[in-house]
Amino acid sequence: MPGQTVREIMTPNPVCLPSSATVVEAAEQMRANNIGDVLVVDGMALTGIVTDRDLVVRAIAPGLDPRITNLAEVASPGWVAVGPDDSVDKAVTLMRDNALRRLPVTNERQEVMGVVTLGDLAMDQDPHSALSEISEAPPNK
């Protein structure tokens, strides 16, 4: 749909944790909410993103203790975000250019408003695609 905004397809109210939260806390939130990422915040302002892959590659594989390792230590360096009133095309371009599967949505004060995922885009852009069908399927338990 031409002129469509990020606000129309984003997932609002994503799970956010402070940078002082531990790897275990992030993993628990991911499991409880059937998600693959948490946004890292300072107050309401986005400071980073941590994915399930980050937990494995940056915490578990090097042998860090997940009970005491905080998210600031394992968050993906340098995050990219989009605004809620930006076009979906801009979100697609940012995700493509930065090889992202998830894109935080922030306001002008960098406060978290939502997140756009590849699944959100697939369901919006091509609801009959394989990726869209996979995204709509219930998670494995």
Rank of each mutant, 00 (worst) to 15 (best):
Q125I: 09
E136N: 07
A130K: 08
P2V: 04
N33T: 10
E73H: 01
R7T: 03
D97F: 01
Q110V: 02
L94H: 02
P12G: 11
P138Y: 12
V115P: 08
E133T: 00
D120P: 11
A26C: 01
N107Y: 01
R58D: 08
P139Y: 05
Q4M: 04
D42R: 08
V57Q: 05
Q110I: 04
V23A: 14
E133K: 04
P127V: 10
W79L: 06
S19R: 14
I60F: 10
R102S: 06
M30N: 06
V6M: 06
Q4D: 05
A61K: 05
T93G: 01
G43C: 14
I68Q: 09
S135Q: 10
S129Y: 07
K141V: 09
M30A: 07
A26L: 08
R67Y: 08
P62Y: 00
L103Y: 03
L100I: 13
Q125K: 07
N98G: 03
C16P: 11
R96H: 12
A27T: 06
T47V: 15
V74M: 05
P138H: 13
A122I: 10
L103Q: 10
I49M: 15
M1C: 08
V23Y: 01
V74S: 05
S135R: 01
V80R: 06
Q4S: 08
D86N: 11
N140A: 12
I9T: 10
S135F: 08
C16L: 15
V92K: 11
P12H: 10
I49P: 06
D42H: 06
V116D: 00
D120K: 04
L64P: 03
R7D: 03
G36T: 13
M1K: 08
A72R: 14
D124E: 11
V56Y: 06
D52P: 03
G3R: 08
D52Y: 13
A130M: 04
V88Q: 00
N98K: 02
V40G: 06
P127L: 06
